[in-house]
Design a protein around this nucleic acid. Structure first.
Lengths: 344, 344
DNA sequence: GTGAAAGCGCTAACAC
DNA sequence: GTGTTAGCGCTTTCAC
């Protein structure tokens, strides 16, 4: 027999013959309640089919148990593991997570403005998205706890990787295979690391080997095609993301250049299809970055200070079968794994 | 100059010299407010930096503007597009979306129980997850609007595909290429369609050709290996999902069977890597299924009746380069596209 | 068109 | 330990 009107805490209190305060304590598992009282109240709760109102509790408490996470391009393969990592941690801590997917600048501004509103979320995680100065200021003034992942924001805790080191690692792997003309496709910070490694190894620093362009596999494919059409083409190409590396693979395929025979290709991120494609890459612990960002937000929410602001996650070279020793490389050159070549 | 205490609607009312009711009307864009009054109020709002409380509004209104979506295995490639589709539609309708990722039965029960709580969400979308009778009953009694995607629930609006037809389409494609011994890996409903098509074509119905096992590429790989080891192995294999088809491709590779030369492989779903791998498949409009489910939930939330309960989305054959005419097939056999072979 | 007042259902501070 | 009470900040009748 369900009551027509949903039971409230007052109904439970009345039914149990206690005050609402006591019921509240029982619901929230407060310590100072006599066991017998607790039992009585619990019975009333069960009998009435009472379910606490999330909304009323949050309003009364002054803050929702909800966190918002803003992610760019949910369909892009590198953000999903991050989101999953964050959801897992947030869930463990009892937070609901509202996900804001951003595909356009307008959407970004819309979501950010909405989240800065009162009682929208207890805290916010921003992934891979740069805020405008005004937006940053809005958050600062609203006092809304904020952390970022994969993007640096002054004064805000952020979880990132050392892209410069990553660039060095990628170039280093190729150099160790004996490559001396290494092409590069996109992204400033990783380029810096690439340059450092290439310079240190005394390999070719031909500016023609460096191509920058918008993110995305198709543009990377075009840039790679340019590199391959060079009079003295590179023997290896480092792309700043796996997505772009896939474009490079496509360009190689289209140009009749065999990988890794004629060309070694190196990606960055280690997204899921990288393994499928046998793509050598620099692994970034994407799931962990989401989890860590969430963990830091929870700390903030608990009132803890989060220091240092910058948390840097480790990177790792994952050699697969898209990289191989350069033809005629010194015999000491490191051997790459054989290519699994699921597709053929 | 920020007030130390966040401005409330009462502050705005006082500042504008009007009643709170009027301020509320302005905030919510109600029609019956004189233009001059609206302007005055708006000024006060801006001056005080007032931001309405989401929580208080929802509590007062009696329902949150939040929808929950429960998805299994966020990291699995077929759910992400669905989630993205749902988020897009819900966002357009002004709903916040809390995402509940479910990796274990315990998590599923936990989330479902929590969502059934009062004022947790205005409505719920469940993706690819079967509820227990008790859970279904809980939702029914709580009156919480519910829709499902990719799973049938009696009495609940659901957006699904015709798996039987899909199975027929897949088998049909392979049959049209001249294959007569077609293996099958996993999933009951799609199997039915496969059987229908195979029977109608008078092709081999050897029960040895049908293998069922748990979802996942590794188990599919094992099952496919069994099929390939048969004395009279199939010339084509239909896997009930792209993920499993990828396992089949791996098995073929490992057994030295060339695709599509010796073996045609057909998947189901058209996940993102299907295109990368040149996998022929049955395309399911995943994004649309999410969007449609969300649309139906919004209708429910608006108070509209949603009929018919079952919404069936169309499927489509996508021939790529993992399928080719059977050796010695009749000359009339349909030609498959050439394999792009990004990886090689 | 606009103001006043009664909730929405809970938490937390305070008294007993 | 437990009851009482005052908010939390808004929406929504209902008068005027």
């Amino acid at each position: 027999m369900q009551p027509s009107r949903p039971a409230t805490i007052a109904d439970v209190a009345a039914a149990a013959g206690v005050g609402v305060g006591t019921v509240s304590r029982v619901i929230n598992g407060a310590a100072n309640v006599r066991e017998s009282t607790r039992a009585t109240v619990q019975q009333a709760i069960d009998r009435l089919g009472y379910r606490p109102s999330h909304l009323a509790a949050a309003l009364s408490r002054g803050t929702p148990r909800t966190v918002a996470i803003v992610v760019p391009h949910l369909t892009s393969p590198s953000v999903v593991p991050r989101l999953a990592g964050a959801l897992a941690v947030l869930g463990e801590h009892g937070y609901d997570t509202v996900v804001c997917n951003v595909d356009t600048p307008a959407q970004r501004d819309h979501h950010l403005a909405a989240l800065a509103g009162r009682h929208r979320a207890a805290g916010v995680i921003v992934v891979s998205l740069r805020l405008t100065a005004a937006q940053a200021e809005l958050f600062r003034r609203s006092g809304l706890p904020l952390v970022t992942i994969d993007v640096v924001m002054p004064g805000v805790p952020h979880t990132v990787t050392d892209d410069v080191a990553g660039g060095r690692m990628a170039a280093g792997h190729l150099l160790s295979l004996g490559h001396r003309r290494i092409g590069f496709v996109a992204s400033q910070r990783r380029l810096t690391g690439y340059r450092q490694a290439v310079a240190a190894a005394g390999a070719s620093q031909d500016p023609d080997l460096v191509r920058r362009g918008p993110y995305g596999p198709s543009s990377a494919e075009a840039l790679a095609a340019e590199l391959l059409a060079l009079p003295d083409p590179p023997t290896a190409i480092f792309a700043a993301s796996d997505t772009q590396a896939i474009g490079v693979l496509a360009a190689a395929d289209r140009s009749g250049v065999s990988v890794p025979g004629d060309l070694s290709v190196m990606g960055f991120d280690d997204i899921e299809s990288a393994a499928l494609l046998g793509l050598s890459t620099i692994r970034q612990r994407l799931w962990d970055s989401g989890a860590e960002g969430a963990r830091r937000l929870c700390a903030l929410l608990r009132g803890d200070r989060v220091v240092p602001l910058r948390q840097q996650l480790a990177l790792e070279v994952v050699p697969r079968s898209s990289t191989a020793p350069a033809r005629g490389a010194a015999p000491g050159a490191q051997l790459a794994a054989t290519r699994p070549a699921i597709v053929n």
